[in-house]
Amino acid sequence: MSAVRLTHIGGPTTLIEAGGWRILTDPTFDPPGRRYAFGWGAFSRKLAGPALDAGAVGPIDAVLLTHEHHGDNLDDAGRALLPSAGTVITTTSGAARLGGNAVGLAPWSSTTLERPGMPAIEVTATPCRHGPPLSHPITGDVIGFALTWDGQRHGALWVSGDTVLYGGVRQVAHRVNVGLALVHLGGVRFPVTGPLRYTMTARKAVDLCRAVRPHTAVPVHYEGWKHFQQPLSQAQREFARAPDVPVRWVPIGSPTDLET
Rank of each mutant, 00 (worst) to 15 (best):
T112Q: 15
A85H: 07
G10C: 06
F29M: 06
L98E: 00
A80I: 01
S84Q: 15
N101L: 10
S44R: 14
L6R: 08
T25D: 02
V63L: 05
V4Q: 04
I9P: 00
L15V: 13
A102V: 06
R129Y: 10
L52C: 03
W40Y: 11
L81R: 15
R5K: 11
K46G: 05
P127C: 10
G86E: 09
L15Y: 11
M118R: 15
E17A: 13
K46W: 00
T25L: 09
A106L: 12
L81P: 02
R115G: 06
G58Y: 05
G58L: 10
A37I: 00
A125Y: 05
G100Y: 08
L82H: 07
R79C: 04
L81G: 03
V88F: 06
E114T: 15
S44V: 04
G99N: 12
V63R: 00
W40N: 09
L113A: 08
P32G: 12
A125L: 05
E122A: 08
D61E: 09
P116I: 05
G58H: 09
R22F: 03
T91S: 06
S44I: 00
H136S: 02
I9F: 00
S84G: 05
P32Q: 07
A3G: 02
V88C: 04
P119Q: 08
L81Q: 06
L47K: 11
V63Y: 01
F43L: 13
R45G: 02
D53E: 14
L6S: 05
A18L: 13
L24W: 02
A54R: 10
A51C: 08
A3T: 13
V88G: 02
T92Q: 10
P32D: 07
G20Q: 11
T14L: 00
S109F: 11
L98A: 11
E114Y: 00
R79I: 02
T124L: 10
A56V: 07
H8D: 09
R115Q: 14
A125M: 07
G94K: 07
T124M: 15
D61G: 14
D30M: 01
P137I: 15
A56F: 01
G20F: 13
L105M: 10
P83E: 09
G131W: 11
L82C: 07
I23C: 03
I23K: 03
G86C: 11
A120D: 12
G39E: 11
T112I: 14
A95C: 10
A102K: 08
G19C: 09
A120W: 05
G49V: 07
I60D: 00
P50I: 02
P12A: 15
L81F: 02
P132M: 09
A62T: 03
K46E: 08
A80H: 11
G20A: 06
L24Q: 04
H8K: 11
R45S: 13
P59H: 08
I121W: 15
L64R: 01
G10K: 03
P116F: 00
P127E: 03
G20P: 14
L24H: 05
H67F: 10
L24A: 04
T92K: 10
H136I: 13
T25Y: 01
T7M: 04
A48Q: 12
G140A: 12
T13N: 03
H70D: 02
L81W: 02
A77S: 09
Y36M: 03
W40H: 13
D75E: 07
I23N: 04
G49M: 01
A56Y: 01
G100C: 02
P107F: 04
G94D: 07
D30I: 00
